[in-house]
């Protein structure tokens, strides 16, 4: 994913057991804060359809 140009920190993988409530909270907080810090994605976002109209024409 990083190879495609997606910033490190935007995608997280975690293994959390159903017994690990505190770990779950920690991970969610961490994910949201790192992603918020990165801000909205710039690439790999589809152009809104209204502006993409017939650009080839």
């Amino acid at each position: 994913m990083e190879y495609m140009g997606i910033e490190p920190g935007r995608i997280h993988f975690s293994w959390i057991s159903s017994a690990e409530a505190t770990k779950f909270v920690d991970v969610v907080n961490e994910v949201t804060s790192t992603v918020k810090a990165l801000g909205p994605r710039k690439s790999f976002v589809k152009t809104p359809l209204t502006t993409a109209k017939n650009k080839a024409a």
Binding site: L49, T50, A52, K53, N54, A56, A57
Partner: peptide, 8 residues
């Protein structure tokens, strides 16, 4: 064009 919008 390969892709052409017709309606909105």
């Amino acid at each position: 064009p390969q892709s052409e919008v017709m309606f909105e």
